[in-house]
């Protein structure tokens, strides 16, 4: 429940931001797309880095 609230309060300003770009005339999606692309790329990067780090450290730590 708290997890949903945590994500929701951060997502609200981001949604408002995107809506503002969607509703304006002439419509432009470039900046919000860049922003969302950056967020998604970084989250994927974090996940991949954590997996890589786990694999590499697993070689070093005695099992």
């Amino acid at each position: 429940m708290i997890g949903i609230i945590v994500i929701a309060v951060v997502v609200i300003p981001v949604v408002v931001l995107i809506l503002e770009f969607v509703l304006e005339k002439p419509r432009t999606f470039r900046i919000p797309s860049l922003f969302l692309g950056s967020v998604v790329a970084q989250i994927v990067g974090v996940v991949v880095l954590m997996a890589l780090m786990g694999a590499l450290l697993g070689l070093l730590i005695p099992q």
Partner: peptide
């Protein structure tokens, strides 16, 4: 969760 979100938003903010 919050630290990753904070880092990602701050980096995006700085970049843009």
């Amino acid at each position: 969760t919050v630290i990753v979100l904070y880092l990602v938003l701050s980096l995006s903010f700085l970049w843009l």
